[in-house]
Design a binder for these strands. Structure first.
Lengths: 280, 280
DNA sequence: CGCGGGCAAACTGTTGACAGACTGCACTTG
DNA sequence: CAAGTGCAGTCTGTCAACAGTTTGCCCGCG
């Protein structure tokens, strides 16, 4: 989704973006299917396509102004990526992540973050440290101003910077994918005022350990930070077992049925062939 | 790929596979595109499609007896999965993993294995311990018999069992994907006689730590084991920087060109439209 | 009144075909 | 003789159409 955001770690340099992605250049470079995939992914992450909702190829095609071919390819890619699940002759559904899986993803992210922090503790340059410290400072500023959205964005930047500088490209992509899956679970921003202070204190601890060159401490701090997020998430998540279709090729026993169960997919009881007229 | 294998941890029970996947049943359940994807993935992993090789949609289509549509969908999925890279109007190439990336994947696998071991140390049942110990015993047996292939397979089973029992389904799938990517690097089996003893000793250490319920020790042992594999891999890998196309949407600067560089793709100087007549 | 069978609609799966783009080669030209 | 240019071939990207299957509804029957 977030392909063209500033270098992810731009706390100091605005990076004027010399190579502006011309529309024509985009068309020449990216395939239509990849564009469609990007668009659908954005829709899913934005909530336009709710979790568990059915993806109608034809509707998506006309909505995006393309044929069904690219849409199918895009959906297939998203399926492999874990954002949607498909069943033959029935359709594709936006994957609904269960609570158990969300917690598992937290563990995965913790491990990845710890890995990046440990590596960063050994290889961090002065610029790296400065960038991270600047982000922490800006987050602290946002916290004082009680600007939750700003803090949220900076938090994302901080973690992205951690992974970008401490991990390789593969690690970074993996982290982003996991983050997307987690976003899928619930839209609600889980950043609350009283959490910001605790969260940023942990951030500072991570940076301090990295600056000290203590790989073990940095790793522990990074993991503890994500674990804290997991704990906060758990505490705010009253709804218990929310078992939806996890991932098609994985579920050993497919008791509840591949689609969002036999029960009606949409909470509103909307019939299958919903006659959505306009854009939404 | 390996959808219908026995429970991954079948060291004792041959598992007669009661639910035999009837061909008709397969056709009814899995989409043609997923079958094609499975087949192409198998080809890539088996080496039939060499790393860096170009994927001709038409040839693949006729070779698999389907049209180009499913092939395209499959390739798109594999692209998202990281096994192939595609450039518009030029084609898809089997991804060639650079040495740096292979090492990074080792780190990732180490983190994942450590995570699974740590969790397993706290939650392992008697059956889990027995299964793991049985696998270690069988590996020791294979080592004594100097049966490298058997050891190799059992080693895979051991690690799969570790992940299956210690991690959730997401973790398991991730580990498998990373393993596939690693397989992509080079075909050569990196299991050598003198390594088997060391390797299995580490296995035994992991199981012992798990049995003792020491999460930290189990995690350290698991990570050290993968790190040892990484080290062994590094020592046997004389070829230095082997920079191929890493991952299309990731590479920040695309200097060397998206395809396997401007230089001839095939080392043998094979012309682009290779006229491979038969099955290969 | 509940239930099973049958029917129709919609959607997905797949295929074939057409247009555009890139590659490589041969030819012309300075 | 080298470099640039034009051309043909092949392949990918995209689209439109056909067939098979599932789903939901309606009607007849017990």
């Amino acid at each position: 989704m977030e392909d063209e955001n500033p270098p992810v770690v731009a706390p100091t340099m605005p990076e004027p973006r010399l190579v502006e992605p011309t529309a024509l250049e985009i068309v020449r470079t990216r395939s239509l299917a990849s564009l469609v995939a990007q668009e659908i992914e954005a829709m899913i992450l934005a909530g336009t396509l709710a979790a568990g909702e059915r993806l109608n190829e034809q509707q998506l095609a006309v909505r995006l102004g393309v044929s069904r071919g690219p849409v199918r390819e895009a959906v297939r890619g998203l399926e492999r990526s874990g954002l949607v699940v498909s069943v033959r002759n029935q359709g594709s559904y936006v994957r609904s992540v269960s609570t158990a899986e969300a917690l598992e993803i937290y563990d995965l992210r913790a491990a990845l973050t710890g890995l990046a922090c440990a590596r960063l503790a050994g290889t961090a340059s002065a610029a790296d440290r400065a960038a991270l410290e600047a982000l922490v400072a800006r987050m602290d500023q946002a916290r004082r101003a009680d600007d939750a959205p700003a803090y949220y964005g900076l938090n994302l930047d901080f973690h992205a910077a951690l992974l970008a500088r401490g991990g390789g490209p593969r690690t970074r992509r993996l982290y982003e994918d996991l983050g997307n899956e987690l976003h899928l679970f619930r839209r609600r921003a889980l950043v609350e005022p009283e959490n910001m202070r605790e969260s940023n204190a942990e951030h500072a601890g991570i940076v301090a350990a990295i600056a000290a060159g203590d790989a073990a401490a940095a790793r522990a701090a990074g993991e503890a930070h994500i674990a804290g997020g997991k704990r906060r998430f758990q505490s705010t998540d009253a709804s218990a077992t929310h078992a939806g279709p996890t991932h098609a090729p994985d579920s050993a026993a497919r008791d509840p049925g591949p689609p969002p169960a036999k029960a009606p997919a949409a909470p509103g009881g909307r019939p299958r062939r919903a006659a959505r007229s306009a854009t939404n």
